[in-house]
Amino acid sequence: MTYFKTLFLSVVLLGAPWAHAQESAQMDLPRIKMSAGMHQIEAQVARTPDQRSIGLMFRKEMPTHEGMLFVFEQPSGLCFWMKNTLIPLTAAFISDDGTVVNLADMKPQTTDPHCALRPVRYVLEMNRGWFEKRGIKAGSKISGAPFDSAK
């Protein structure tokens, strides 16, 4: 079952217990530095199911060079949506070695699924258009932890 379907069923069946308690952006996640060519990225890291479920929800803005890296335990057919996310984002679905598999532009406050074209463990969300403006596309490499350890 894809992450999207699992998350959807969890929200429907469990009533999203975090939704009422969490109505502000999570800002205290660990941060890592990465790069895409000469372009620097500072990403908050969402590793736990709760951190990944909340993601970038409720944020009204995000600095240009910042993003969020979603880390999963194993590669799978991940899908993301934008419910309660207020800013437009682009998701980069990334393989273990840091290769961008595909990109998906995502519209705020929708439940439209945006999916990896093949199983991945990492998804990097940046402000919409960040990758395009820098010429980063499928096949481009992202470097830095955790991708450097895959070499």
Rank of each mutant, 00 (worst) to 15 (best):
A16E: 14
F131H: 03
P113T: 08
V12M: 13
G55D: 05
F72W: 00
S149I: 10
M57P: 01
T111D: 14
R128G: 07
D112Y: 15
V123D: 00
V100P: 02
S35C: 12
Q51H: 11
K60D: 07
D96V: 05
G55R: 02
A25M: 04
K151A: 10
A104T: 06
R118Y: 11
C79D: 07
M57S: 06
S76T: 11
P17N: 07
L89K: 03
C79H: 13
C115N: 07
I136A: 04
K151Y: 12
T111C: 13
S140D: 06
C115F: 08
V120A: 01
E42Q: 06
T110E: 10
A36R: 01
K60F: 15
A150Q: 08
P146W: 02
A46F: 00
Q26V: 09
D148Y: 04
D148T: 15
G135L: 08
F70T: 04
M34N: 05
M1G: 12
P88K: 07
G144T: 06
L103E: 05
E66G: 03
I32P: 01
L124S: 00
L56C: 10
I87M: 07
K151D: 06
D96S: 10
E61I: 04
K137M: 15
S95A: 09
G139I: 10
I142C: 04
D105Q: 13
F70H: 01
T6L: 15
D96T: 15
I142G: 02
G129A: 07
